[in-house]
């Protein structure tokens, strides 16, 4: 039985459909990647899974529980077992790096400070920032902030982690380390990972299964090898990063030509 089961998901922002009938299964202990062009709703999907947004139609089940039917306290219990790495890092700016990683431990456990210290240093060591523990979040670069956020997301040793763009802003070395880290955590702790990303090469390297999302629908899904072999033009364009093809780079609307013929619009 998959850990996460999304069925017939519909979600609207105002009149704009973000999802129209999406079905996704996320297997336990695997790395599942969700890929798609910018603005298709990948972050939105993670927030729907985390119960921060409500679908307009359809269901999302995590570990057999319908996320949007849970009571508040059950939802919070479930969230303790879900880690999420935000695109922006979302570190608490009034706490140091150390306190940020310690935050979930202090909130949810009664561990003594000495044990919290060991755990925090261990997690920070894993992301290579143990010696940055006394810095304030404002003193970190974007990439460093995301690594601290990762250390924080795994602090409670959850059953699953949702990574929102873990690779953006990382240099090749830390990128390699992160790819490794995600891999290792999956293998060692049996963690289920959902990776949202545009980095085709890195994602293909770690993902066991990939969903390609565009225009509110799943365009294709399969293992990286299957996708590379896919005959669909769309998939080929995305996987190879070609500028021309069926994937729209532009936000939906009238053609550029038409706009050029309307000089009075902002006059």
């Amino acid at each position: 039985m998959p850990l996460i089961k999304i069925r017939d998901l519909h979600f609207y922002r105002g009149n704009r459909a973000i999802f129209e009938g999406v079905n996704i299964d996320i297997e336990r202990g695997k790395v599942t990647a969700i890929m798609g062009p910018s603005g298709t709703g990948k972050t939105t999907l993670l927030k729907l899974i985390g119960g921060q947004l409500r679908p307009d139609k359809g269901t999302i089940e995590v570990d057999g529980q319908n996320v949007h039917k849970l009571s508040r306290s059950d939802l919070y219990e479930l969230r303790k077992r879900m880690g999420m790495l935000f695109q922006s890092g979302a570190l608490l700016t009034d706490l140091t790096v150390y306190d940020n990683v310690a935050f979930p431990l202090r909130e949810h456990t009664d561990l003594p400070e000495s044990m919290i210290r060991d755990l925090v240093l261990m997690k920070l060591q894993a992301v290579g920032l143990r010696n940055a523990r006394n810095l304030q979040p404002s003193e970190l670069s974007g990439g460093m902030a995301r690594r601290v956020a990762l250390a924080r997301a795994v602090a409670l040793e959850p059953m699953m982690i949702m990574y929102d763009e873990p690779f953006t802003g990382q240099d090749p070395i830390s990128m390699g380390t992160l790819v490794n880290l995600i891999h290792r955590m999956n293998d060692a702790m049996g963690l289920t990972s959902i990776v949202v990303s545009h980095d085709v090469a890195e994602t293909a390297e770690i993902a066991d299964y990939i969903y390609l999302l565009s225009g509110g629908k799943i365009i294709e899904h399969g293992s990286p090898v299957q996708l590379r072999r896919s005959g669909s033009q769309w998939v080929q364009q995305f996987m190879q990063g070609l500028p021309d093809g069926p994937v729209p780079f532009h936000y939906a609307g009238p053609e550029f030509k038409e706009d050029l013929l309307k000089p009075e619009e902002y006059a």
């Binding site: 969230r79 303790k80 999420m84 935000f86 979302a90 570190l91 608490l92 700016t93 979930p104 924080r152």
Partner: peptide
């Protein structure tokens, strides 16, 4: 307002910490 706009509040929610209480 800044905590909200930098996703700190929703980050807390995802860590199962109720930002209104905390």
């Amino acid at each position: 307002g800044l905590m909200k706009s930098t996703e700190q509040l929703s980050g807390m929610e995802m860590m199962a910490v109720d930002p209104i209480r905390r």
